[in-house]
Simulated assay, not measured.
Amino acid sequence: MPGGRSSRFRPGDHRGDLVAVSRGLPTAAQVEAFLAAGFTETDILQVLLAASVKTISNYTNHLFHTPVDKVFARRTWAD
């Protein structure tokens, strides 16, 4: 997105790990770095919500064996 939030990220930038790698318990320094990059506390909540929706989707698909769409079939792996 030209001029959008994604322009603040560079290859190798791991601010997106704020929720995933810290398992929901980022350090004060991680939060400060995220905010210092120009993001807000609302952005932190949006990252958390995105991770939550993805987790619920994955669990649902695993529990109910949702078939993968043909267009994505080549990206699957064996259990």
Score class of each variant (00 low, 15 high):
A50W: 08
D13A: 09
S22T: 13
Y59P: 02
L18Q: 03
K54T: 06
S7H: 08
R23T: 10
S7L: 03
A36I: 00
Y59S: 13
G16T: 08
T66H: 08
D43K: 02
V53D: 04
L49T: 13
A28N: 11
V31G: 01
A50T: 10
T76V: 13
L18W: 00
K54P: 02
G16F: 04
A50P: 03
R15G: 09
K70C: 07
A28Y: 06
D17N: 15
L45V: 07
G38D: 11
F9L: 12
L35C: 01
T66D: 11
W77I: 10
A51W: 00
A36N: 11
H14L: 09
L63G: 09
R10L: 13
T40V: 07
S57Q: 15
F34L: 01
P26D: 14
L35D: 04
V47K: 03
F72I: 06
H62A: 15
G38L: 08
Y59A: 15
A29K: 04
R74F: 06
V53S: 11
Y59G: 12
D13R: 03
G38W: 04
G24S: 13
H62M: 12
D17W: 09
S6P: 02
P2C: 05
D79G: 07
T42N: 10
R75Q: 05
A78S: 14
L63F: 15
G12K: 05
W77C: 14
A78Q: 09
H62T: 11
F9C: 07
R15K: 01
R15S: 10
V71F: 05
L49R: 12
V31Q: 01
V21Q: 02
T55V: 00
T76E: 12
G12C: 10
M1D: 05
F39N: 04
L35R: 03
A78E: 15
R5V: 06
P67M: 13
L45Q: 10
R74D: 14
D79A: 09
R5K: 14
S52D: 06
G16S: 09
A73Y: 00
L45C: 09
T27E: 06
V21P: 01
N61A: 15
A33T: 13
T55A: 08
A73S: 15
A37C: 14
S57P: 07
G3A: 06
L35W: 03
G16K: 03
A73C: 01
V71Q: 06
N61H: 15
A73G: 04
T40P: 00
L18H: 01
N61R: 07
T55G: 03
K70P: 03
A73E: 09
F9R: 01
